[in-house]
Nucleic acid binder design. Sequence first.
DNA 1: ACTATTGTACGAAAACTTTCGTACAGTGAG
DNA 2: CTCACTGTACGAAAGTTTTCGTACAATAGT
Lengths: 113, 113
Amino acid sequence: MTPHHPDRDQIKLENVLNALGNPMRLAVVRVLAGGGEHACGTVLSKEISKSTLTHHWRVLRDNGVIWQRPSGRENLLSLRREDLDARFPGLLDAVLNGVDSAPETIDQFTAHI
Amino acid sequence: MTPHHPDRDQIKLENVLNALGNPMRLAVVRVLAGGGEHACGTVLSKEISKSTLTHHWRVLRDNGVIWQRPSGRENLLSLRREDLDARFPGLLDAVLNGVDSAPETIDQFTAHI
DNA sequence: ACTATTGTACGAAAACTTTCGTACAGTGAG
DNA sequence: CTCACTGTACGAAAGTTTTCGTACAATAGT
């Protein structure tokens, strides 16, 4: 099935907040914020079932937070930073700056689960 | 029962995003962002059952987004702006600035439900 | 062609959310 | 004191989320 990405102007604040309001997806976004594309299997390096990950990719994708594109046998993920910044200026920066004060960094999160 | 408010440093980004990732609660926060205190019954002026409202006050309160204090027979709500700004600088501003581009303003929201 | 890798699809279970109605507690006004 | 008002508590129903296992599709390498 072709992955469904909303257009920039169809991205809704409420949906983005909702997508980010989950520790696992927040962790993913922090990794992707580092830049570039990551294969699905290389973002979170812990024992999380593939179908669970697929579910979260869908939430992030359908709500306009990430791009997902096939490449060979991998599926590459990247943050829709430009679209999010254009649509909700400052939001992503604020969320990413909230890292230090957040209870879970990526490592703490993955160590926790 | 005494309402439970988390301390400033116990407010979690993920929880705040989650609390705000709901159209009704987002609408409430926009009203409270206008400043001051509002009685529970005066924030959203539409046919939403009191118990549903109570549920949303709890979510917003427990996740550190609002203060709630009894006053006479009313229960006054206000935004925890200082705490949120201190904890996640720029987040609330970004969320509130996302209003114009959001699909529902308060009125559109209440007209919609 | 066969096999291993990478991820999606589907179905299911458990947990959580959202909403409501009804019942109740506390306050203020008459 | 009694009554209306404001909101909470509780229980329930419907819907959504989160997680998993198993099965499958597509690609890349041998």
